[in-house]
Structures are given as structure tokens and as C-alpha cells.
């Protein structure tokens, strides 16, 4: 086992365990905090995959923005402890079993993937020499310019939508 593999093993076990922690916490605040740790681990995984930019936005956007939004909402809603007493729905054993089957099937299928397309031009050396951000930027602003602009529109819609939805309406009720 190389050092690489060791670190991957640690990360894989940690990510799996943390995921279980996240979904089983009684208090949503705790779940979000576990999620934060999980995201840091995923960011590290990205670094191993030569994706420094992704690691950065994983921390900044996911951990820094989205999770903070979650925390805000949780604080805002002031969920009573009574409500948190029962964590799971009645159908939870069925859910776990069925999902386990799905996962198992997926693993079986994915193991058999053996056809791969020819390697692309972005070899590790090239990315290293150019720098990850520059490579991503170049691709993003040339080949994927239109989706990029559409993404900005989606964000705009989200902003407006969130404001409209969360606004207190006068006269309603």
C-alpha cells in the first residue's frame, strides 16, 4: 500500500463515516457541523485529483455559503425539541434496505465499466504547468461560455425566487 492509497483509504472511511453521522444527527445544527467536516474532507480529496480550484470553491461556497445559509434557516425557524425527538419516519428500515440494494446493484454495474474513451489533452503535467485555475478558466470561458451565462441566469432566478417566496405577503392569511 502506497502512501497515496493509505491517505485515500483514510479519506474514504472518514467521508463514509461522516456521511452517516450527518444523516443520523438528532439536532440539525449538529448535522450541519458534521457536514462541514465532511466537506473539508471532500476538498482534500479534490486536491488529490488535481482539482485545486474545486477544493477552494468546495470550502468557500459549500462550507462558507450554503451551510451558513442552512444554519441561518435553522436558527430562524426555532424548531422545538419535541419535534426533534422522533428522528426517523416509520418506514426507515424499508428505506435502508431498499437503498442498500440499490447501492449494491450500482456497485455491481459500475465495477463492470471497462470501456473508456481516449484520454483527453489535459494531462496532469499540462495542468501543473499552466495552473489549474487558468486551465479551468480557459475552458469555461471558451467552450462552456453559454452554459456559464445560463448558470448566472439560474442564480438570478434563485435570488428573485428566494426573495419572493420568503417575503411576508400583506393581506394574505
Amino acid at each position: 500500500m502506497t502512501a497515496h492509497q493509505l491517505i485515500f483509504a483514510y479519506l474514504a472511511i472518514a467521508i463514509t463515516g461522516l456521511s452517516v453521522m450527518v444523516i443520523t444527527r438528532r439536532n440539525p445544527v449538529h448535522a450541519v457541523l458534521w457536514m462541514l467536516v465532511l466537506f473539508v474532507h471532500i476538498a482534500i480529496l479534490y486536491l488529490f485529483l488535481n482539482a485545486e480550484f474545486l477544493a477552494a470553491i468546495q470550502i468557500i461556497i459549500y462550507a462558507g455559503a450554503i451551510l451558513v445559509l442552512f444554519l441561518f434557516v435553522i436558527m430562524l425557524l426555532d424548531v422545538k425539541d419535541v419535534e426533534m425527538e422522533r428522528r426517523f419516519l416509520g418506514l426507515w428500515p424499508a428505506g435502508v434496505v431498499i437503498t442498500a440494494i440499490l447501492t449494491l446493484l450500482s456497485v455491481i454495474v459500475l465495477r463492470e465499466i471497462d470501456v473508456f474513451p481516449p484520454l483527453g489533452q489535459f494531462s496532469i503535467e499540462r495542468i501543473r504547468s499552466e495552473g489549474n485555475i487558468m486551465t479551468i478558466g480557459r475552458v469555461l470561458y471558451t467552450r462552456h461560455l453559454l452554459p456559464f451565462e445560463i448558470a448566472s441566469l439560474i442564480l438570478l432566478v434563485a435570488i428573485i425566487g428566494a426573495v419572493v417566496l420568503a417575503k411576508k405577503r400583506k393581506g394574505v392569511e
Binding site: T16, S19, V20, V22, I23, P28, V79, E83, M84, R86, R87, F88, L89, L91, W92, G95, V96, I98, T99, A100, L102, T103, S106
Partner: peptide, 12 residues
């Protein structure tokens, strides 16, 4: 899979 389980079984 863990995410799916979380989606299905949680009440909150």
C-alpha cells in the same frame, strides 16, 4: 446511497 437513505428516512 447514504444520501438517499437520509432523504428517505428523515422527518425533518
Amino acid at each position: 446511497g447514504i444520501g438517499v437513505i437520509g432523504f428517505i428516512i428523515r422527518r425533518n
